[in-house]
C-alpha cells in the first residue's frame, strides 16, 4: 500500500505573556536531544549548549523593576541566512517548514553560525562526554554529535517523524491503539494537534512547558493552537511588504528581527502588561 504523502508545515508560537522563565523547556530539551551537560567550565568558555535559552531582561529601574523572559530557540526561518552559506548542504530547508541539520555532512566551517542573527547555532568544540551513569539516559532516537560539527534546535524532528510513522503510515491512534480509518480529511490518518499531544509527539520544550507558553502545531490546521497566530502574522508580513502601516500597539503577534526578512516559523506573542512599569515615576 502506498501511503499518502501529507504536507505539513510546522510552526511554534511563544506566548511571552505566559512565560514565567522557569527553564523547564531548557531542561527538557537538554534531556531529549542528548545535549552534553553544561558545566561551569563550559559556561566560562562561552561554549555551553542551550538549544533553547531563556533570555532574562530587567525592565524599569530599582525599585520599580520587572523581570522579562523570552525563550529563544532556532527560528526555522523560511529565508534562513544559515542555509545558503553552507558549502556542503549540511543545513537545508525541508518542505515542512523546518530547518534541518545533517550531522553526517557537516564539516564544521562554522559559517552558518556566523550568519545566524539569532545566535542559536552551537558548535561542538570538544568531544561531548557524559558521566558513565548517564549512558543509559541518552535518547536512542537522537544522534550523538561528535566534535567539530554544528547543531541546533531541530523542532524535535525525531518525535514528529515518530508521530508521522505511527499515525500516518501505520494508522494507529496513539493513545488507544485503535486503527484509524483510511479516509481523506482531518478524521483520517492525519497527525493533528490532539494526536501529537496524545502520543507525546510535541517537541520536548512544548510538552514540558507548565504554562503552555510554547505552542506547537501545524500552521495550516485550523484545529491546532497556532493556526490563528500564523494567519495573523502572515497577514501582517504581507501588509508590511506592501508598504501598509501596522499599528503595533493593536497586535501581539511578531517575529524576532522581522526587519531582516528571515521570516521565521516561530512567532512571538507580546506580553500583556496590566500594570506597565512607569518610567517617569521614579
Amino acid at each position: 500500500m502506498v501511503t499518502k504523502r501529507i504536507d505539513h508545515k510546522w510552526g511554534m508560537v511563544v506566548d511571552l505573556d505566559r512565560c514565567t522563565g522557569c527553564q523547564a523547556c531548557v531542561v527538557a530539551c537538554q534531556a531529549e536531544n542528548n545535549l552534553p551537560i553544561n558545566t561551569k567550565d563550559s559556561f566560562q568558555q562561552a561554549r555551553a549548549y542551550e538549544w533553547i535559552r531563556i533570555e532574562r531582561y530587567w525592565e524599569g529601574e530599582f525599585p520599580n523593576v520587572k523581570a522579562r523572559f523570552i525563550p529563544i530557540m532556532c527560528q526555522h526561518c523560511e529565508n534562513a541566512p544559515c542555509e545558503p552559506v553552507c558549502p556542503v548542504y549540511a543545513t537545508y530547508h525541508n518542505d515542512e517548514g523546518m530547518n534541518v541539520q545533517v550531522y553526517n555532512r557537516c564539516v564544521g566551517t562554522r559559517y552558518c553560525a556566523n550568519n545566524c542573527p539569532y545566535q542559536v547555532r552551537f558548535f561542538n568544540w570538544w568531544e561531548p562526554t557524559w558521566p558513565e551513569r548517564m549512558r543509559n539516559q541518552l535518547n536512542p532516537d537522537v544522534t550523538i554529535r561528535s566534535r567539530g560539527i554544528m547543531e541546533r534546535c531541530s523542532f524535535c524532528v525525531q518525535r514528529i517523524r515518530r508521530g508521522e510513522i505511527t499515525v500516518e503510515r501505520r494508522g494507529v491512534e496513539p493513545l488507544t491503539g485503535e486503527r484509524i480509518p483510511d479516509v481523506d480529511g482531518p478524521d483520517g490518518r492525519y497527525l493533528n494537534y490532539q494526536r501529537m499531544k496524545d502520543g507525546n509527539f510535541l517537541p520536548a520544550c512544548a510538552q514540558a512547558c507548565p504554562t503552555n507558553a510554547l505552542k506547537f502545531g501545524e500552521q495550516t490546521d485550523p484545529t491546532g493552537p497556532v493556526y490563528q497566530y500564523f494567519q495573523k502574522a502572515n497577514e501582517q508580513y504581507d501588509k508590511v511588504h506592501h508598504g501598509e502601516y501596522i499599528d503595533e500597539s493593536k497586535t501581539r503577534v511578531y517575529r524576532l528581527l522581522e526587519e531582516m526578512g528571515t521570516k521565521p516559523n516561530v512567532i512571538y506573542l507580546k506580553k500583556v502588561d496590566q500594570f506597565p512599569v512607569n518610567e517617569s515615576s521614579h
Binding site: N114, W125, W126
Partner: peptide, 15 residues
C-alpha cells in the same frame, strides 16, 4: 585530535 576547543574561538567569535 582534541577538538577545536583548544583554540581561543568561541561563541560568537567562530572565525
Amino acid at each position: 585530535n582534541k577538538g577545536l576547543g583548544v583554540t581561543g574561538m568561541n561563541r560568537p567569535v567562530m572565525w
